[in-house]
């Protein structure tokens, strides 16, 4: 366990069930090249057994052969970070310098890797993003320090939205499931992920949660991340946007102390503005600091307890929903184009 921020391999639990097992996969490419990697895998996982998956840019189809001989296929994102092993024992990098082969192992002391440390998470995030886009689901990832008002905001947001659009919630918390219970009291489905010692949600956990929750098409998925302004900035979950909540009971300089989160967010909600008369919090100063870090940051001032500012916040969600629907239409168009392309290939071979 890390002494610095306390995160670690921790016991991740999804509604109380342990979430941790992986196995090795062998990937066989159409051209006969083979490569292996491990990834988490269960029967419920979208990426594993679905016969068809959304195809993100740069993805290609993989066939997986299991130890028991069963075979399944899925699409899988390559970012030039994947190491491929060829049948002839030569090795090359996914996008090495023009596909160059590495020198023989006997002389080579240095092995070039050029791989993003969080590449594994990013791969799962892209998969979630595709899964969501495919279904026109708008996913927002709410992040803040503990106590800024995320759960209270979610409860009120669900109350306001639930007659217009279905809302489902993923709740991240290190230990408890109180927040999920608060959400369920509104009637919205909520799934609790307990990260144990882990101080953030990752994309693999959220992928699993998505399958359990299976939110309907054209709905809203709200994710309450673990209360922490550091780690969650680096872990893409596949959301459309991160929404950072800063309450007026915190310091105005928080955006300068935790710049990564404010840089990663699209929207900042300044919460608890009902308390402004009793405090010396300078809202404009906080906004200026946040925009030093992220000049494009959008800002809405709200109170989750009085509902002040909610018209703007709900309007913002509505605009994102329109984007999600437009994105889904693009996916459908791309799929049609892809089908036409494949049919043309088939006809040519036929």
């Amino acid at each position: 366990m890390c002494n610095v921020c306390g995160c670690g391999t921790g016991e991740t639990r999804l509604e109380g069930e342990a979430l941790d097992h992986e196995h090795e996969h062998e990937h066989v490419h159409a051209d006969g090249t083979v490569h292996r990697h491990t990834h988490h895998h269960t029967d419920e996982h979208a990426h594993s057994h679905a016969p068809y998956q959304w195809v993100p840019a740069g993805a290609h189809g993989h066939t997986h052969r299991h130890a028991d001989g069963s075979v399944h296929a899925h699409d899988h994102v390559h970012e030039g970070e994947h190491i491929h092993e060829h049948g002839d024992d030569s090795v090359h990098y996914g996008q090495g310098p023009a596909g160059a082969h590495a020198p023989g192992m006997s002389q080579a002391q240095m092995v070039r890797i050029e791989q993003n440390i969080l590449a594994k998470n990013d791969g799962y995030a892209e998969r979630n993003r595709g899964w969501l886009a495919d279904r026109g689901i708008l996913a927002l990832n709410l992040v803040s320090s503990p106590g800024s008002g995320k759960t209270t905001l979610l409860v009120r947001t669900i109350e306001e939205l639930k007659n217009q659009v279905p809302v489902a919630v993923v709740e991240g918390d290190q230990q408890t499931s109180f927040d999920a219970e608060r959400i369920r009291a509104t009637g919205a489905p909520a799934l609790q992920i307990n990260t144990g010692k882990g101080c953030h949600l990752d994309a693999h956990m959220v992928g699993r949660a998505l399958e359990k929750l299976s939110p309907p098409e054209d709905s809203v998925l709200l994710v309450e991340n673990v209360g922490n302004l550091v780690c969650p900035a680096a872990f893409d979950l596949g959301e459309a946007a991160k929404v950072v909540v800063l309450s007026v009971t915190e310091g105005e300089d928080k955006p300068l102390k935790y710049p990564d989160m404010f840089a990663a967010a699209r929207l900042m909600l300044v919460n608890k503005i009902d308390l402004l008369p009793y405090l010396s919090f300078d809202v404009q100063k906080a906004i200026d600091f946040a925009r030093r870090v992220n000049p494009r940051l959008e800002v809405i001032q709200v109170s989750a307890t009085t509902g002040a500012g909610f018209a703007d916040w709900l309007g913002w969600i509505d605009a994102r929903l329109d984007e999600a629907r437009a994105g889904r239409q693009r996916t459908v168009d791309q799929l049609r184009a892809r089908i036409a392309e494949l049919e043309a290939q088939l006809a040519a071979k036929g």
Binding site: C2, C5, C7, T38, V91, M105, Q115, A119, A234
Partner: peptide, 24 residues
């Protein structure tokens, strides 16, 4: 930040490279 998660990501990458490229 989450240095422990980063260290785990590094371990994964190193172990994968060792397996696929045959060094230990």
């Amino acid at each position: 930040m989450h240095e422990m998660s980063l260290a785990e990501g590094i371990r994964q990458i190193v172990e994968d490279a060792g397996r696929s490229q045959g060094f230990n």
